[in-house]
């Protein structure tokens, strides 16, 4: 995978490859838990009847899904690490990297951890009133789909870093595509207003359209990051200094 005759265990890019392969693992788990296990996604309608909402919020599968995702949440920093290592190589201000990092952290808390707590709470203790469950349902979906600002900053920082970078770590067109990621967050803003139709949180424009853009972006960025890691010179690695030691030490002992 990392090329050359060295085994993958001695690859100097092993850290990056582990972070890299955590991404498909993370997203596969996401997909399985979100769709067939709990049917949280595609989003249920904001106009669902109260008995439907109560049934959904108290289902055991939903509780199991929330526990799995709350545990797997720790993989989010690992998968972001492999992006950030590449952003660090770009000829842009570190402000981009830090904005991206903090945007990812705050975005994931609101966009992932909050919904997991909301959906998980419903099944945790039977007997919550239906009004409370409905509020948690709204809270969960709005936090998941309508958590806009942090991701806006994150995508904008990533997109601009790619566009302004003169080392050409990632292709420029990917930078422009990332700017659309920022636009998808703006597109989702009407979920705070509309309760039905194409602009509701399960709507054609706010969810499906943004999802098509997002999923294809995720695949493209993944391929580009793969190539960036592969093309990175070993001397340029952050841990390059650490690899000097073994070559010096045996020379001393043999003398």
């Amino acid at each position: 995978m990392s090329g050359g005759e060295t085994s993958w265990r001695t690859s100097r890019k092993l850290d990056q490859w582990i972070a890299f392969w955590s991404v498909p693992f993370f997203f596969t788990l996401f997909g399985l838990v979100f769709v067939p296990l709990s049917w949280m996604m595609p989003p249920r309608s904001p106009q669902n009847s109260t008995p439907h909402i109560v049934d959904f919020m108290q289902s055991h599968n939903l509780l199991i899904a929330c526990v799995i995702l709350t545990l797997a949440y720790g993989l989010a920093p690992v998968s972001n690490a492999c992006y950030l290592i590449q952003v660090k190589r770009m000829s842009v201000s570190p402000a981009f990297r830090y904005s991206m990092m903090i945007g990812a952290v705050t975005g994931a808390i609101v966009g992932m951890l909050f919904p997991m707590f909301c959906f998980g709470l419903g099944a945790f203790r039977p007997g919550y009133s239906s009004a409370v469950l409905t509020m948690l349902y709204d809270f969960g979906y709005l936090a998941f789909i309508g958590s806009l600002g942090c991701f806006c900053v994150m995508w904008m920082a990533f997109g601009l870093a790619i566009i302004l970078d003169e080392n050409r770590i990632l292709p420029k067109w990917l930078g422009y595509y990332t700017v659309w990621q920022y636009v998808t967050e703006l597109m989702a803003a009407p979920v705070w207003i509309a309760k039905s139709g194409p602009f509701a949180w399960n709507g054609l424009m706010t969810f499906w359209f943004a999802m098509i853009l997002y999923v294809s972006w995720q695949f493209l960025v993944y391929i580009c990051i793969y190539r960036a890691i592969k093309n990175q010179l070993e001397a340029e690695l952050d841990n390059a200094w650490a690899d000097l030691r073994p070559t010096v030490a045996p020379a001393k002992s043999s003398a």
């Binding site: 292709p171 420029k172 067109w173 930078g175 422009y176 595509y177 700017v179 659309w180």
Partner: peptide, 11 residues
């Protein structure tokens, strides 16, 4: 820039 044309068409 040719990548701008990518952006224009996509947009």
């Amino acid at each position: 820039d040719s990548s701008m044309w990518f952006f224009v068409i996509g947009d």
